[in-house]
Amino acid sequence: MLKKYIFYIFISVFLISCNQDEEQQKIRIATLKGPSAMGMVKMIDSVRKNPNSNIEITIYNEPIQVRKLMLEEAVDLAILPTTMGAILYNKGVNYQLAAIPVWGTLYLFGQDTTIKSWSDLKGKRIYLMAKGMTPDVLFKQLLLQHGINPEQDIHADYSFPTHIDLANAVASGQAKMGVISEPLVSLVEEKNNKVKPIFDLNEEWKKVFPEIPIAQTALLVNGNFAKNQKQEIKKLMLQYQQSSVWVNQNPEKAAELIVKYNILPNTDVAKSSIPRSNLKFVKAKNIENEINNYLKIFYKMNPDIIGGKIPDKNFIYR
């Protein structure tokens, strides 16, 4: 009886490891449901249409799911907020920053029409998702720049822990004001036309930090993969870049693909979201200073946001 079990265990372990070997040959890319996947959509389309493709792209809902895969080094390329990428790098997880494909898509959104200036926000309840994530820290940084203490002068409410929940709450009016990102901004607008942008946080950011663009989303590459597959990475980066350009130039067709791959529910939302998503694929090695300055802002706020220190030069994939 026992022998039989041991036999089964061996067989299953053997099968699992075979399976893994097979997958090892594939290039695994983890992306996020949002602007990063929207910019990648042409690439996704060509990969999925080609049955012989050695690339596997999976779209995840939450950054934390992608982070889990990176901790296991189970993906070769991954999309994650730049700050989280820095944390992983600083904690010794072997991923380098290859490119910034998305540049700031955040809005303060809501039905409150009384807000004209930043100081009007004092004493207000503002809904944010996931404490410590980019929308939260970026918005708080802007508050600080306008002399508002985010811990005392406003009520930061994290009742809606995921981006979708928060967007729904803003759309239904349950949350009067929330910081949300494209493409959900377009989604909310479509659902409820009373909800309007109160601040375009990207514009507000430019006013305060004209030299430091919001390097919001990062394309990260696994260190070992980077060492051995330079050519492959070059090809993939080019593909992603071309896909982003194509999406910006062909919003109609891109919108259809975005709906087809379940990134957004309908083409109207996709069409209005594309131009607002700041899709622009830029290699990290060309904007090293900008990235460092972007991270420094958060470092000054709370070093833990980027993992305790400014990442060293090796963080940038060359």
Partner: peptide
């Protein structure tokens, strides 16, 4: 952890988890 009030052990745990501490 889920409601994230300004102060609280759950809030602190969630923040630590986000920052991989």
């Amino acid at each position: 952890v889920l409601s994230q009030p300004q102060f609280g052990i759950g809030t602190a745990m969630q923040t630590a988890q986000t920052y991989l501490l």
